[in-house]
Design a protein around this nucleic acid. Structure first.
Lengths: 192, 192
DNA sequence: CGTCCAAAGTAGACATTGACTAGATAACTA
DNA sequence: TAGTTATCTAGTCAATGTCTACTTTGGACG
């Protein structure tokens, strides 16, 4: 019988880890701090040391989520350094994949951004996300393969469309094949 | 002192009414059945007669929401019976307006659709929503002012884009002027 | 008109949860 | 080694959703 030590040693990380899994399996509403603590084998008050309240945990999850999403989109997009349209398409695919694979987390992410007094780290993380898209859009416009003069406007439009397709996909309104088609249609409409 | 009668007489309607307001003011998380009952001046168990559980109330709100949204979009869209592009644009504006004015409700609506075992009435309501968009899209394609051969595909794409713009708008990522510009840009890309 | 019944609402209970507090314990540091 | 601080425990509290047994009301029906 391994005695459980007083100090967990890595509680914060484990809570985030387990929370992400629980989120994926059961959604935000079922995410309970106490249950998380139970699973991690600590007392119900322990999480408070690392997260002042439930929202702080969700904010931390949101930040991690945006980081992972941005990284994934950047990786996908840069696999085709010469064809910006293909890169943007790959990036959009990555977004939609994230939206279906981690629907609840994505909700948490945008909902954290939406909060009246959103945390600074969350805003920074969204900023990084938009910056990722903007870089690809800017490259596309600069190379002449994307229409539109205003980079910011195009970035918003493309982000919004990705977001919408992802939302429908995660709502089960579309099939994977339809998602691909929608992404292609969308980007085709804005290609020069 | 008006004695409160045992029978409220119209509790179900009043609960929905108050819930919608509370949703608008404080979001889903703050929506409490007990508080609703208190405000309506009934006991905490009374709502159970009309809504088996919290989710049933949210489902009912979702249905009402979709009905109102669909009606609003239909009204906006049909104000320009000859110009289908203008009609679609007006319809999109109506969606975004709904998204900003009733952000929490819209969340409840899509979240109700997303539920594993979504209620039949909810699915019917979403169906009506999509049918509304589809009618406008079909008219646009038939008249030759909208590109695309596949009505369903175009309906999904346009719905998703509206949804995305609405989401960003309600998240405060865009200004009203930007919303207008985004809608115009999007539809312009798909105009023949 | 009186009786009976189903619908509507009451009131109390229960488990669960997020939040807060005081105190115990371990780890680091000077 | 002593003191300080971060970490965790355990107890408490109010609020909530849900459930159940009971009461009240309005209407249908003989």
């Amino acid at each position: 019988m391994t005695e459980r030590p007083f100090h967990h040693g890595n509680l914060r990380a484990e809570l985030l880890e387990r929370a992400e899994i629980m989120l994926r399996q059961r959604g935000v509403d079922e995410l309970s701090l106490r249950e998380l603590a139970r699973e991690a084998g600590v007392s119900h008050g322990a999480p408070r040391t690392h997260f002042v309240d439930r929202r702080a945990l969700l904010d931390a999850l949101a930040v991690r989520g945006f980081e992972r999403l941005s990284a994934s989109m950047q990786a996908s997009g840069s696999r085709e350094p010469d064809d910006h349209i293909a890169g943007l398409t790959a990036s959009a695919h990555a977004y939609v994949e994230f939206a279906t694979g981690d629907a609840a987390l994505l909700e948490v992410m945008w909902s954290a951004v939406k909060e009246k007094d959103a945390a600074a780290e969350v805003l920074a993380a969204v900023g990084q996300f938009f910056a990722t898209v903007e870089a690809q859009v800017a490259a596309g416009i600069a190379s002449g393969s994307l229409i539109g003069h205003d980079v910011e406007r195009m970035t918003l439009l493309i982000s919004a469309t990705m977001h919408g397709i992802g939302a429908f996909a995660s709502a089960g309104r579309t099939t994977p094949e339809q998602n691909d088609a929608l992404i292609d249609d969308a980007i085709a409409g804005w290609s020069a």
